[in-house]
Simulated assay, not measured.
Amino acid sequence: MSTNPLAALSDAGVSIWLDDLSRERLNTGNLAELIAGKHVTGVTTNPTIFAAALAKGAAYDEQVRELVARGADTDTAVREITTSDVRHACDLFRDIYTATDGVDGRVSIEVDPRLAHDTEGTVAEALDLAKAVDRPNLLVKIPATLEGLPAITKVLAEGISVNVTLIFSVERYRHVMEAFIAGLEQAKANGHDVRSIHSVASFFVSRVDAEVDKRLDALDSPAATELRGKAAIANAVLAYAAYEETFKGERWEALAAEGAHAQRPLWASTGVKDPNYSDTRYVDQLVVAGTVNTMPEKTLHAVADHGKIEGDTVTGRAAQAQEVFDGLAEVGIDLDDVFITLETEGVQKFEKSGAELLETVTGQLNQAKG
């Protein structure tokens, strides 16, 4: 095992992706440096990331002025600004994409947050984004809401690779994997080469501990305190067990025989929210081959500096994870309600971040108009 934690993580079979993108990163060569020196093999984005990028510096000024000159409205401007950055990033990762046969070198772009509960709108938006970016290493992000599930299937059926986001519970994750397999089956029936279709399932981690710990603290008992900080890792371990269980058997083997790639688990929300916890815990404790960990730059550098990568920390630990869940139930934590709360809040944050991006771009356009 390498003494370089990021190299060790990569050697363990975990793809390291950066949860951030900006025109400044692209123009200054920062992203290229992270690819070369920090083992970064992909990028995830969201509207909050783009709003933050637009709010600082002058990297977008020229494009904003050009959009104003053309009379572009806010929605058009958002689409052109974000797809320009994603297209540029896709080109930067193209060599990795080729070298890994399409597994890595991926860049994600999210569908309009206003469509989180609109199946057909999500499908149309995903198809439009894929056409606008026009790069084979694009992943279109679709939320795992109940309305998002059939959209996932329909988009995959069109031969488009998908990053499924906002997954909190193992139950919903099983539905996501079913939507993925159904999508590949339909893609095959539609004449698409399933070998070219890839997907990741973004399972949110730190937010689970944040919500469960808050409820445990309210109970104010030794048994509850003992369970602090254990829910998120246990949830991810159980998710991985569900992944192992799903991608076997006749139905999957029929697709695998055609060269289909399993939908990889992606650990998202891996920046630590409680300062009492190690800032690398959602990386160190989620090491298993064939997964992705997308992390903010702060976490990436923390892992590089003092991460403790000690081999597979996930496989075969489902029984221990279930014991944690059983213990949470015994002290009175309603996990079903936890996951409903997290999804509801996740969609609200999703929509809020989209509104912030629209507001930021509107301000940029107005400023350029003088």
Results as ranks from 00 to 15, higher is better:
7 A>S: 14
8 A>G: 10
9 L>S: 04
10 S>E: 14
11 D>Q: 13
15 S>N: 11
20 D>I: 04
20 D>P: 01
21 L>Q: 04
21 L>F: 08
22 S>N: 03
25 R>K: 15
28 T>G: 10
32 A>E: 13
33 E>I: 00
36 A>N: 11
37 G>V: 10
37 G>I: 10
39 H>V: 02
42 G>Y: 11
43 V>H: 03
44 T>D: 10
45 T>N: 02
46 N>I: 11
47 P>H: 08
48 T>H: 07
48 T>R: 15
50 F>E: 04
50 F>V: 05
53 A>T: 07
54 L>Y: 11
56 K>A: 13
60 Y>T: 00
68 V>A: 15
69 A>W: 13
78 V>N: 11
85 D>K: 02
87 R>S: 15
88 H>K: 09
89 A>N: 11
89 A>L: 10
90 C>W: 03
91 D>F: 00
111 V>F: 05
117 H>V: 00
117 H>N: 15
122 T>S: 14
131 K>T: 14
132 A>K: 14
132 A>C: 02
132 A>G: 01
132 A>Q: 13
134 D>K: 12
139 L>G: 00
141 K>F: 09
142 I>M: 12
142 I>D: 13
152 I>Y: 12
154 K>H: 06
155 V>A: 11
159 G>W: 07
160 I>M: 07
162 V>L: 12
165 T>W: 09
165 T>Y: 09
166 L>W: 05
166 L>A: 03
168 F>N: 09
172 R>T: 14
179 A>M: 08
180 F>H: 15
184 L>T: 09
186 Q>D: 08
186 Q>P: 01
187 A>W: 01
199 S>W: 00
201 A>E: 12
205 V>T: 15
207 R>S: 13
211 E>S: 13
214 K>I: 00
215 R>L: 10
216 L>M: 11
223 A>V: 02
226 E>T: 08
227 L>P: 07
229 G>V: 02
231 A>D: 00
231 A>H: 10
232 A>L: 07
234 A>H: 02
235 N>P: 02
236 A>W: 07
238 L>K: 07
238 L>G: 05
249 G>V: 08
251 R>E: 10
252 W>C: 02
252 W>L: 03
254 A>W: 05
254 A>Q: 13
257 A>T: 06
257 A>P: 03
258 E>S: 06
259 G>M: 04
259 G>S: 02
260 A>Y: 06
264 R>Q: 14
266 L>W: 11
269 S>Q: 06
271 G>M: 03
272 V>K: 01
273 K>F: 12
278 S>C: 01
279 D>W: 09
280 T>K: 02
282 Y>Q: 03
283 V>F: 01
289 A>I: 06
289 A>W: 12
292 V>C: 06
292 V>S: 05
293 N>G: 05
294 T>N: 05
300 L>N: 03
301 H>A: 09
304 A>Q: 11
308 K>R: 14
312 D>N: 14
315 T>L: 09
320 Q>F: 09
321 A>W: 07
328 L>H: 08
330 E>D: 15
336 D>V: 10
337 D>R: 14
338 V>Y: 13
340 I>P: 00
344 T>S: 14
347 V>Q: 12
350 F>M: 12
353 S>E: 14
353 S>N: 15
356 E>M: 09
366 N>Y: 03
369 K>P: 04
369 K>Y: 05
